[in-house]
């Protein structure tokens, strides 16, 4: 260490640029907190529990949006988890190397499709299918929480598959060989040896995918219907899934943000929506990242 006493130009430049990036992020957080302050002072906790959002009456309650966000993310995860983890298990446990790579290429391409293209597919195709499928429940249109959830579910598939595949591949091959050597079938090896060891990685993958589902805006915006104040009569009933709703992100993406700028309280409420979204997503991402770091035991 003693040879590097005087910091080199490279070190100074690198350190400066790193600090710029870190402080830009901190500044971003600070701006969110500072600009949302008025609404916390005026609404307090009722910002979360209040079921009505009428900005002309200065009523700011995000409970229905939280509900919509959670429903969309839950439907998405419910669709994507079996398919994503199933694909990962099949690719990593049963397929020979080359076929596995082919599946991974397909999944990478699926991951590359922009969300606005998913949104276009949703608005043109999925919306009509859902409308027809939901006919028994007499929906007003094909713009429902269910539509948004299904669309986001498709978008999560590549994320879940790639992360789960990483988790499964990080289990040493020697363990699989040992299990097969003891006479276990490939299925038994996967279920009893690989999956139990890979579960932190799989759980991490679920959390990260959940974070993505909460934050996805464009595709949700196009098919969710953006109906404010849709609070269900019963939290457990499935009926509201066939109706339009609003999520935190679709609210933020809408034109209301331009109206809000003139009114400090309304603006604060909109920024607070962003802050809530940021805290939710950051928590899930942080938890997922930390859990994924727990590597399986070496042989």
């Amino acid at each position: 260490m003693s040879r590097w006493k005087r910091p080199s130009v490279t070190l100074v430049v690198c350190a400066l640029l790193t600090l710029v990036a870190v402080f830009a992020f901190m500044g971003m957080l600070a701006v969110f907190v500072a600009q949302s302050a008025p609404v916390w002072r005026s609404e307090g906790w009722s910002f979360f529990t209040q079921k009505q959002w009428f900005y002309r009456q200065q009523l700011f309650g995000i409970a229905p949006m939280l509900y919509g966000t959670v429903v969309v993310a839950a439907v998405a995860l419910l669709v994507a988890t079996p398919a994503g983890i199933g694909t990962a298990v099949f690719a990593s446990e049963f397929l020979p190397r080359r076929a596995r790579l082919a599946v991974k290429v397909a999944i990478e391409l699926l991951a590359g499709i922009p969300s606005v293209v998913y949104g276009l597919l949703g608005i043109v195709l999925l919306r009509d299918w859902i409308y027809r499928a939901l006919q028994p429940f007499d929906p007003l249109s094909g713009d429902t929480l269910l539509t948004a959830g299904l669309l986001v579910g498709v978008m999560l598939l590549p994320t879940l598959m790639t992360l789960s595949d990483d988790a499964l591949r990080s289990v040493p091959a020697s363990q699989r060989l040992a299990a097969r050597g003891l006479g276990l079938t490939a299925t038994e090896t996967a279920l009893r040896v690989t999956l139990p060891q890979a579960w932190p990685g799989l759980l991490g993958a679920l959390l990260l995918a959940g974070g993505r589902a909460l934050g996805e805006m464009i595709a949700v915006f196009l098919v969710v219907g953006r109906q404010d104040n849709q609070w269900p009569e019963s939290l457990l009933s499935l009926r509201p899934m066939a109706e339009a709703g609003q999520t935190l992100s679709s609210k933020l993406g809408g034109p209301e943000i331009n109206i809000a700028y003139g009114d400090p309280l309304h603006w604060a409420a909109m920024v607070a929506l962003g802050l809530v979204l940021l805290v939710l997503v950051a928590t899930l991402t942080l938890a997922g990242t930390l859990i994924r770091r727990r590597k399986p035991h070496a042989p």
Binding site: T87, A106, I107, L110, L121, L125, T187
Partner: peptide, 27 residues
């Protein structure tokens, strides 16, 4: 059980890859 599990996970993979084909084809 082995065959059933292989089929089930294989179907998942087919769905995932099929989605790519369907989406790209549709566009």
């Amino acid at each position: 059980t082995d065959i059933a599990f292989r089929t089930a996970t294989g179907l998942c993979a087919c769905v995932a890859c099929g989605l790519l084909v369907v989406i790209v084809w549709a566009i």
